[in-house]
């Protein structure tokens, strides 16, 4: 249970996910923010105004998936590191996840990393496609990781520098 473990269950997640149809149309943000807290940078950072207007700073973020382009601009602005972009259309057999990442060393594009799920269990491997770390992200890097399509909804973290051979 989320409030006991900090790990969202499939039930918690179901209300946050776009339709299967939307997922098949290209990149889209998944906002894994489950309890109302006084926080609103997600809403302010979206250039496409895809978040429902916050009447109150304690509102839960609600995303209009038809407006979200999956650009990822909101990811680094969320202090909860709770926003991920998933793209099921990246390749025929692989999807792409954009993950906020604040650990050193940063991964390097073209390398492999170990992928972890929401409980920190190892799932498999992913290929780092790109690492965004501009000044405007203020040290929260956004790592683009390609993983098998079946793992796109499970992978939420990566482990760098411990490839399978080095372990």
């Amino acid at each position: 249970m989320l409030a006991k473990t900090g790990i969202p269950t499939p039930d918690d997640l179901s209300s946050k996910l776009p339709s299967e149809e939307r997922l098949q149309q290209g990149p889209v943000a998944i906002v894994e923010c489950f309890t109302p807290i006084p926080c609103d940078p997600c809403y302010h950072s979206c250039p496409f105004k895809a978040f429902q207007v916050f009447q109150d700073i304690n509102d839960l973020p609600v995303l209009d998936f038809t407006k979200c382009t999956g650009c990822g601009a909101c990811i680094a602005h969320c202090p909860g590191l709770a926003i991920f972009v998933v793209d099921y259309t990246y390749q025929p057999d692989r999807g792409l996840i954009k993950i906020p990442y604040e650990f050193l060393p940063l991964p390097v594009a073209g390398t492999e990393v170990i992928t972890l799920n929401r409980s920190g269990e190892e799932i498999g491997q992913g290929s780092v496609v790109r690492v965004q770390n501009p000044l405007s992200f203020d040290k929260t890097a956004v790592v683009w990781v390609a993983v098998p399509l079946t793992e796109v909804m499970a992978v939420r973290h990566i482990k760098v520098g411990v490839g399978p051979d080095e372990r």
Binding site: L2, A3, K4, T5, G6, I7, P8, E32, C33, F34, T35, I37, C78, P79, G80, L81, A82, L116, N117, R118, S119, G120, E121, R156, H157
Partner: peptide, 23 residues
Amino acid sequence: ARQIGGYLVHAAKISRTGVPIYT
């Protein structure tokens, strides 16, 4: 306590690195 007192987004950040939270 029986529940995590802090914001759950903070809890999720450490859970996904594999740190268990025992309530």
